[in-house]
Amino acid sequence: MTEIRAETDVLPGVDRAAPLLEVTDLHVEFRTRYGVAHAVNGVNFRVSPGETLAILGESGCGKSVTAQAVMGILDSPPGHVTGGEVRYRGLDLLPLPEEQRRRVRANRIAMIFQDALSALNPVYTVGFQLGELFRVHRGMSRRDARKRAVELLDQVQIPLAKARIGDYPHQFSGGMRQRVMIAMALALDPEVLIADEPTTALDVTVQAQIMGLLAEQQRQRNMGLILITHDMGVVADVADRIAVMYAGKVVEEAPVHDIYARPAHPYTRALLESIPRLDHKGGQLNVIRGLPPALDAIPAGCPFHPRCDYAQDACRHDPPPPYAVAPGRTARCHFWREVVGDE
């Protein structure tokens, strides 16, 4: 372990006593021919070692863009980070020169993607793609890198790891491919793992296995895990805290049990009500009325107001700040008291 951490500990400005990962007021926009899309508009969250933060929200609310901005892998152009901070152990990553930023990726903060088939390079063996990490970041020989790659495949429970190291991504099943992705993300023993919808592309049974593997590895390594998903069902079992995103903002952040018991934001509430329940046979499925706003025309005031049952006049003019609902719990709603109080 000491040998692994050695290289990146020279990063100046890292304070081991500071919070693991802290994102403050992050802004990202995409400048395209058709206008400027404000994909992320002031996102705040924090992850500690061993903690799982779930980021929830409808499609297009900026979850993946937030993750990419944290990693520093936005498509740029058209994507630009226009404000905020991403502090890893107290060190703001955003102003770092690319050469230093690069060393944080995979070493300290790693990421896995939704569709492992397209996220893996089709023309290289998984052994190559895994070993590459050790060769580039650790200066290992091809041979040692390969050995480490086999160990990793073993750790993520890929059967016959040694024999499969020379296989190409298309020769694996969906679940096995996602395991390869996970192995790749864990290779350099990162402190934070961002998983962007890691199970969306998989069968239900396989989903559970992959989530189990992630949870197990997180426990063993005491990693901070950011789990991006739009599936509220998955979240309940694994997450410690939840950040709910809407139109590029975190509208509610809370410990998982609190949020399920008493949501403090009308959007969270609506999301919870939209979960299909087995005991709800034949009942009306609650779907949030209306559509999320276009990112180049986000409504003034509270962006949720056109769809909100609690909306009042103030909502149309004053954007709600993150109100402190309880210690470690915020909601961007002027009327959170009513929402929490409502049964």
Partner: peptide, 20 residues
């Protein structure tokens, strides 16, 4: 997508282009 992965792996721009 695999280019995004390659960058997430902390590879240099040159390696992302030249190898992947």
């Amino acid at each position: 997508d695999y280019v995004r992965t390659a960058r997430a792996k902390g590879l240099s721009g040159r390696r992302v282009i030249g190898v992947h």
